[in-house]
């Protein structure tokens, strides 16, 4: 029987799944993905963690629980840093340890630490320590790593050049049944609305109550951080706050800054309740939007968010943006 590695469909999954999948495939290892978030997943995750934990981590624990008896290993990497002097949030750093503490029945956790502030050697060692679970041959590990990295770059490139969302690519890869039908409408969209925030909020249809679909149904084209190249995100971020302090700051500050520069019709900022970095970063974008008099809607999500309330706010926001645009074009 082949070894199965569990990958929870939460947090970093949206950014890195194709890369991870390619890496494990090289060793003939099967990857098991948890199903899209459901009410049961959220409830089970909430029941294990302390109440003050942020929603994404609660959901992550729910996904781990749903996979616990379906795989031999659980893959929970720790991305400490992806750039100089920028670190990740505490909860992502403590993720394997939190999982071990709150879900003791989880299969053995594969945790590797990626830290761009350390030497290249420590990166090699981290990847080798992961590959060693499946092969003793370092050359095979190297080959798998190179292939995985290439796939990641291609994935990122495809999203920014074709304007795709991660789910449009990954869903085809891992689950044929769950394909979001995003057939382009023939008539050109009325509005361009940017949705900024971390991928695990934007692309998880359960926790954001199908925000993207809803906005599209209201006749707007949705733009997300992944549709912008990394260079453009970094440039926008640097002009706004200087050097970033958090690893995934580009998703929020970079994307927000970029879409403010390119003058989209409105921006929706999506944040999770109790998220530390978002509480600061969204505020920076909010202030900037206010200075530029650009429409900005700040939505905070938690496990109690009701669809009705969110829809009302979305409709009101889009109506406001539409009226504003009409007013501008008349003048």
């Amino acid at each position: 029987m082949t070894t199965r590695v569990g990958i929870p469909r939460a947090l970093l999954y949206y950014q890195y799944y194709p890369m991870w999948q390619a890496f494990f495939e090289e060793f003939g290892v099967e990857t098991a993905i948890s199903p899209p978030t459901t009410k049961d997943i959220v409830t089970s995750g909430c029941s294990r963690t302390v109440a003050e934990t942020c929603l994404p981590v609660k959901i992550f624990c729910g996904h781990v629980l749903s996979l616990a008896d379906k795989c031999d290993y659980m893959f929970i990497p720790v991305i400490r840093s992806m750039g100089k002097n920028a670190y990740n949030c505490s909860k992502l750093l403590g993720l394997p340890d939190i999982t071990k503490a709150v879900i003791p029945e989880s299969p053995p956790i594969l945790d590797i630490e990626i830290d761009a502030n350390k030497s290249k050697y420590s990166l090699y060692r981290a990847i080798y320590s992961l590959g060693r679970h499946f092969t003793k041959n370092p050359l095979r590990i190297e080959k798998a790593t190179k292939k995985a990295w290439k796939i990641y770059l291609a994935y990122r490139q495809k999203m920014s050049s074709e304007g795709l969302m991660p789910t449009q690519i990954t869903d085809k890869m891992c689950d044929k049944r769950h394909q979001v039908d995003l057939a382009e409408n023939d008539s050109p969209p009325l509005l361009n609305i940017a949705v900024i925030g971390h991928p695990y909020l934007i692309y998880d249809d359960y926790i954001n109550h199908r925000l993207i679909t809803q906005v599209q149904a209201m006749g707007a084209k949705v733009l997300t951080p992944e549709m912008v190249s990394e260079q453009a995100l970094d440039a926008a971020m640097t002009s706004l706050v200087g050097n970033p302090r958090w690893t995934y700051e580009a998703d929020v500050v970079g994307a927000g800054g970029y879409y403010l520069q390119t003058k989209v019709d409105g921006i929706i900022g999506l944040a999770a309740f109790a998220c530390g970095p978002d509480s600061m970063m969204m505020n920076i974008i909010q202030r900037r939007a206010r200075q530029l008099k650009a429409p900005f809607l700040y939505l905070t999500l938690d496990e109690h968010t009701a669809e009705g309330g969110m829809l009302t706010r979305l409709e009101a926001f889009l109506d406001m943006v539409k009226r504003r645009k009409r007013g501008q074009s008349c003048a």
């Binding site: 003050e52 503490a101 530390g276």
Partner: peptide, 16 residues
């Protein structure tokens, strides 16, 4: 503090 990032991690781990 409420929503403190590092301490929430500690709070989750301590009972185990």
């Amino acid at each position: 503090p409420f929503t403190c990032m590092p301490e929430t991690v500690a709070q989750n781990i301590m009972p185990s």
